[in-house]
Design a binder for these strands. Structure first.
Length: 580
DNA sequence: GCCGTTTTCGGCCCGACTGTTTTCAGTCG
């Protein structure tokens, strides 16, 4: 079992304890232990042999060590199992609804026998929530909307989760001598924000027609397999423990390119491509591009051959959404979309001054290792008290510290001073302007916790970016993938005003954030809005992990020119709104 | 349940906001 899974079990136990009304400090210990399990570089599954090693981890004491050992041995935790029996497995999903915390779950369980999202929907429809404490019309409406949003995203997985699984599956497939190549396809390869299921293609001598029996058995032996859906000659389908459906397809080498093209999609792209093939006297399938008359094969082994035979440029999978890429590829006018190598600096990160894990120096060293020319330290401001946010005095001291570290680096890297301020309920910022004016970069971030009706929310953000000290708008939609829908805001009005003011808009690369969706990004480009790519790292190890965010930019056809931190340090600063 | 000690107990990130309240509980970050 990997660290992530163990962390998840601890986290779930903490959630259940909270519903059960356990001691809050004990609960916090479980959460800290879960975080430690996720963060540590120690491989827990093997470290459980050695209790002393577990105790070295901050946040793991004697009791947690034995719990980790129990998890490793039995796959679960007695406390968790007991509470799950008591409340039912559905309560954990109830917690995912916005505005729903442990107290409300507990109330619903006690007063209305609600223990799952299904039962909550029933109870709302039956009017059984009316009259319960703190359950007014607004609250019930909020829950109803939350249920709708939840149902819409059910069965989907975040890109990073799917990619982790894909990586493990590919590694497993390549262990079999008859498999030479294994590639994830489908929406994962297109870099969609979320993925419904996973297509993995495998090819090699063991995948040739009529000889697949041994390879099929090898696939079926994947350790992460939870239950088998179907097992045929060329395809094995199963669920993983998380419920992600995986289809592994075994293909002859000669058809690899055609299959990769076919299974990468999208549907619209493939339909258009097949139409073009027909017009040219070909037929395109997952097996090959062939002559319409006689069926002689034209191309099949690689995607490049197929696109070339159709007299068009090959294009990155992210662009295959039937949004004009076929015409552009035929005319040779596909833009050179941005890639990870274009990024020259990261401009949103946290240190131990607020809620990060590393010092300014450690972040700078990590940035240097990523090949960056610059970084910006942007810790939280005081309003986010739980993050140990900086007040005016500490913010000024922090700037001084950042400047010192920049000197220590002896010109190796530029370090911008900065801060991530909170936008208050009335659109004001939570730090004094005199202090903000001394920062290289002020990111004003939208947080959904103060969500208001759309008009008010929009007005609040518009007011915040009018402040001349604000140079970047952070988390413009406040969404968390699969957890919280974007906040209700007129994003077009916000992007338009930001473009006018020269305020850059952040696209956070963290796979649970991806602040702007495909449509927002296209809109931003259209409006001439400057985009800034950032990792929002709280740990030096996450610096440079921009690939998920980059893929969204590629999907929206953004080029290096559209993104400010593809420029050098001076170019980046110069591209921001001049300081007020 | 963890941790560090003024070392075997007693502390443990807390402030803003919303909705339901009429003084505050619950959620979020």
């Amino acid at each position: 079992m990997d660290n992530k899974t163990m962390a998840r079990l601890l986290e779930e136990t903490a959630d259940l304890m909270e519903i059960d009304g356990a001691d809050s400090f004990r609960i916090r210990s479980y959460r800290r232990a879960a975080e430690a399990a996720e963060q540590t570089t120690i491989e827990l599954a093997s470290a459980v042999q050695d209790t002393a090693r577990l105790l070295e981890i901050d946040g793991i004491g004697k009791s947690m060590a034995s719990k980790l050992q129990a998890i490793a041995a039995t796959g679960s935790l007695p406390q968790r199992d007991e509470l799950l029996t008591k409340y039912g497995a559905g309560v954990l999903s109830l917690l995912k609804l916005p505005g729903m915390g442990p107290k409300t779950v507990s109330l619903l369980w006690d007063a209305a026998q609600v223990a799952s999202i299904e039962q909550l929907a029933e109870a709302i429809d039956a009017g059984r929530l009316k009259g319960l404490p703190r359950m007014g019309a607004k609250q019930i409406e909020k829950l109803r909307k939350g249920i709708d949003d939840y149902r819409r995203s059910a069965g989907r997985f975040r890109l990073d989760v799917a990619e982790d699984e894909a990586r493990r599956i590919v590694a497993h497939l390549l262990k079999f001598p008859g498999i030479e190549k294994a590639t994830p396809a489908g929406s994962l390869r297109r870099g969609r924000e979320t993925v419904g299921d996973l297509d993995v293609l495998a090819t090699g001598p063991g995948c040739e027609p009529g000889q697949t029996a041994a390879a099929v058995e090898h696939v079926a032996g994947y350790p992460g397999l939870h239950d088998m859906i179907a097992k045929g000659e060329n395809k094995v389908s199963f669920h993983t423990g998380l419920g992600l459906q995986v289809d592994v397809r075994l293909l002859p080498s000669a058809s690899y390119g055609a299959a990769l093209q076919y299974f990468t999609g999208s549907k619209g792209h493939n339909v258009s491509l097949r139409q073009r093939a027909l017009k040219m006297g070909y037929t395109l399938s997952e097996w090959s591009l062939a002559m319409l008359e006689g069926g002689a094969m034209v191309a099949a082994a690689t995607e490049e051959e197929i696109y070339a035979a159709l007299k068009m440029e090959w294009m990155p999978p992210e662009m295959r959404e039937n949004l004009g890429e076929i015409d552009a590829a035929v005319q040779g006018t596909l833009p050179r979309v941005i890639s990870l190598e274009d990024i020259r600096g990261d401009v949103h990160m946290h240190t131990t001054a607020s809620d990060g894990n590393n010092s300014v120096r450690e972040m700078a060293d990590a940035a240097l290792k990523c090949g960056y020319k610059y970084l910006a330290i942007t810790d939280h401001s005081k309003n986010l008290a739980m993050t140990n946010g900086l007040d005016e005095k500490r913010a000024l001291e922090h700037i001084a510290r950042i400047r010192e570290v920049e000197k220590e680096m002896e010109g190796g890297i530029r370090i911008f001073t900065g801060i991530e301020v909170d936008i208050l309920g009335d659109g004001a910022l939570d730090l004094a302007d005199e202090v903000l004016a001394q920062m290289d970069i002020v990111i004003a971030s939208v947080h959904s916790r103060f969500e208001q009706p759309r008009e008010e929310m929009t007005a609040r953000v518009l007011r915040a970016i009018e402040n001349p000290n604000v140079r970047i708008l952070g988390h413009p939609t406040g969404r968390m993938l699969l957890r919280r829908e974007p906040i209700a805001i007129d994003i077009e009005a916000v992007l338009r005003r930001a473009a006018e003011l020269g305020v850059a808009v952040e696209h956070n690369a963290s796979p649970e954030r991806l602040d702007l969706n495909d449509r927002d990004l296209r809109l931003a480009k259209e409006l001439g809005c400057k985009i800034v790519m950032s990792s929002d790292s709280h740990d030096a190890r996450n610096l440079g992990r921009l690939d998920y965010g980059i893929r969204q930019l590629r999907r929206a056809w953004l080029t290096p020119e559209d993104v400010l931190n593809t420029r050098d340090a001076e170019g980046f600063l110069g591209g921001l709104r001049p300081r007020g």
